[in-house]
Amino acid sequence: MESEGIKSPPPPRPPPLPVLPSPTLRHLARHWLQEDAGTFDPASALAGTGVARAQLLCKSRGVLAGLPFADAVFQELGCEFRALLPEGSRLPAGRTVVAEVRGPAPALLYGERVALNCLGRCSGVATMATAAREVARQQGWSGLVAGTRKTTPGFRLAEKYALRVGGADPHRAGLDGLLLVKDNHVALYGGSMEELVGAARAAAGFCRRLSIECRSEAEAFAAALHAAAAALKASWPRLVVEVSGGVTVEALPHFLGPHIDVVSMGALTHSAPALDFALKVLPPGGQ
């Protein structure tokens, strides 16, 4: 509501999406295309050699993600790709046209399944990430919902990107993203938690963040022990507390609290159902 002379503040702008490097996109597109049809497609001969147009449409409710990957796939095949909706758009139930592609008819068919799989998988991850983020906000929690490394081999970058589109933090991209000491490291090290933390800091170096997975409150206090700290958050407010392990969207409210900073969820990637996308070739001169 606005009163005379007083304007309401503008709505918050969504965070910018990360820029995906063109060489990386081309490399992924080539790999995926090679995997799907490494030799030849006998059926593509039926398409002729002329130029054709097609629409990419979604038949599911959700959040649109994956357009840069679909674009890269068709560009690799010499086609022109034009998105009709911005990344992150909310897709209603029913059939929604999200993009158009134009190029040699065999190329449209050659890239069809790869591009649709990219859109379906990325949109599924973005949809689940959005759902988790909205559950957290409904609880009044201001921390971060994050993904994990539980991703599909060969498709990690796309799934991490889709987490961003859905408003979740992608977490570390690989083992070198931070020094994460888990229960197996603790079991194999064999020393005390204090000794383990010291050894981990020496291995991490000064520029890499250290994260310790703790199995009990006593371990948590030991892992965070500092000369000036007698308790976790009370005496060391910059400590980041992350909850992880078996967290689902349904159970997420039970893990949220005023002293929890991050809840990481493997379910955002390994359990996200893909959205249903299709490609429909348009008749010559059709709309």
Rank of each mutant, 00 (worst) to 15 (best):
P68Y: 02
S60E: 08
P10T: 06
T96L: 01
Q75N: 05
F277N: 04
A274P: 03
P104R: 09
W141I: 00
A29H: 15
A131V: 13
G38E: 06
H31C: 12
E217Q: 11
L178E: 09
V98I: 14
L64Y: 08
V181N: 07
L279E: 10
S271V: 02
H27I: 08
S44I: 14
M1S: 05
L46C: 15
L163D: 06
D169W: 10
E213F: 09
P10D: 07
K59I: 05
I260Y: 01
G88P: 06
R172E: 05
G198P: 05
P21T: 08
F255S: 03
G78A: 12
A65S: 08
E87G: 07
V281H: 00
D276S: 14
W141M: 01
E159T: 11
E4F: 03
A93T: 09
G154P: 01
G177L: 05
M193G: 14
G246R: 07
E2K: 10
R90L: 09
G124H: 05
C79P: 00
L25C: 01
I260F: 00
T152D: 03
Q75P: 01
L179P: 09
V63T: 14
F69W: 11
V197R: 06
A129K: 09
S211P: 08
A131R: 15
R149N: 12
A158Y: 11
F81H: 02
A267S: 12
V263E: 05
S244P: 13
A37E: 09
R113D: 14
S60L: 07
V247I: 15
G167D: 04
A54Y: 01
K59Y: 03
